[in-house]
Design a protein around this nucleic acid. Structure first.
Lengths: 149, 149
DNA sequence: GTAAATGTGAGTATTGTAGTCATATTAGGG
DNA sequence: CCCTAATATGACTACAATACTCACATTTAC
C-alpha cells in the first residue's frame, strides 16, 4: 500500500513551484532537472495539476508554470487526492455491494477511523509549510555539517 | 491506495475463526462459503496465515483450521502486515536512494506521522474486539429493524 | 515563420493482483 | 492397505495499473 510515483512527483513539483517568487514562471524542464523527474512524465503530471486548478500554465515563448493560488492554501491532501483520486483504504468503504455487513461491521469503522486520521494529517500541511520547514531543516542540517568539519 | 483483497479476505477469515469456540476446528471450505471468498484463493491465504503463526492447521480427516493464539492477542495490524508486508505510505520512507533530502525533508516527516497514526489505530484493535463489536452492532441493528416493522 | 513553450493520445514494458487448476501431502478409520 | 477427507503448493492465466516514452499538436512572442 503505497502512494504512486505520480503522487510523489506532483508533491515535489508543487513544493518546487512554491519556492518561485510570486508572479514569475518556471519551466517544466527546469523542475524536471532539479527534482530529478522524467520530463515527459512530469509534463503529464503538470497537465493534471493544471486541470485540477492547482497550477496555472501559459504556452509559447515566455510561457511556463506557476502556482494557481497561494501556497498556504494548498494542502498535501489537495495534491495527492487531485492526482490519485480519493484515498480509500478499504474496499468496503467504497463499494456497498462488496460487503453486506456495512451497517454493523466493526472492521469498517476501524478503517474509517484510520483513514480519517491520515487524511486530516495530510490536510493539515500546506505546501507552504512544507517548503518552509524543509528550508529550515536544511539550514540546520548544513550548520551541523559545518560545525562537524 | 487501497488494501488488497487478500488482506481483506484474511481479516474476514480471522474474524470468522475467532468466533469458533476454542479447541474446535473449522474447514476452509466453510469459511469460504460463509464469508463469500473464492475457496482456492482462501486456501492460499490460510497457508500464509499459518506460515506467519496466526493460524494453526491440521491435515487429513478431522483436520481443519483454528486460531494459533487467543483472539485478543491478534491485532488487525498483525494480519494486514503479515499478509501484505509492511505498510509504507511513501516511497522515500523505505528507499534511501530514492531521495537525497531524507535528512531534512519535511514531506517525509508528514508521511511518517500519517503512517504512524494509521498503524497505531490498526494495532489498537484485536480481532476479538472486532468480532465482539460486530456482534453487538448486529444485535442493535436487528432490534432496530424489528421495532421498525 | 520560427523558436520556445505546454498539451495530449497512443503505445509499451513491467509489475502486481486475483484467481484457477492440477497435483501433492497428510491423517483417520475401516 | 486403501479410501476418504482434509490442507499445501507450484504453475499458470487474465486482467489491470503503473511508469514511462514518443510523436505530434497547439499556442505564443518576436
Amino acid at each position: 500500500m503505497r502512494i504512486s510515483m505520480t503522487g510523489e512527483y506532483a508533491v515535489r513539483a508543487m513544493i518546487h513551484l512554491s519556492s518561485i517568487s510570486k508572479g514569475k514562471v518556471t519551466h517544466i524542464s527546469d523542475i524536471s532537472k532539479e527534482q530529478n523527474i522524467p520530463e515527459t512524465l512530469l509534463r503529464k503530471i503538470m497537465g493534471q495539476l493544471v486541470k485540477i486548478g492547482l497550477v496555472r500554465s501559459s504556452r509559447g515563448k515566455g510561457g511556463g508554470v506557476m502556482l494557481a493560488k497561494p501556497g498556504d492554501s494548498i494542502s498535501l491532501l489537495d495534491i495527492i487526492q487531485g492526482i490519485e483520486g480519493q484515498i480509500i483504504l478499504n474496499q468496503c468503504l467504497v463499494d456497498e455491494k462488496y460487503c453486506d455487513q456495512t451497517s454493523y461491521c466493526a472492521v469498517r469503522k476501524v478503517w474509517q477511523q484510520a483513514q480519517d486520521q491520515m487524511l486530516s494529517i495530510l490536510n493539515g500541511k500546506s505546501i507552504c509549510d512544507l517548503a518552509n520547514e524543509s528550508n529550515r531543516n536544511f539550514l540546520e542540517f548544513s550548520n551541523n555539517k559545518q560545525t562537524l568539519n
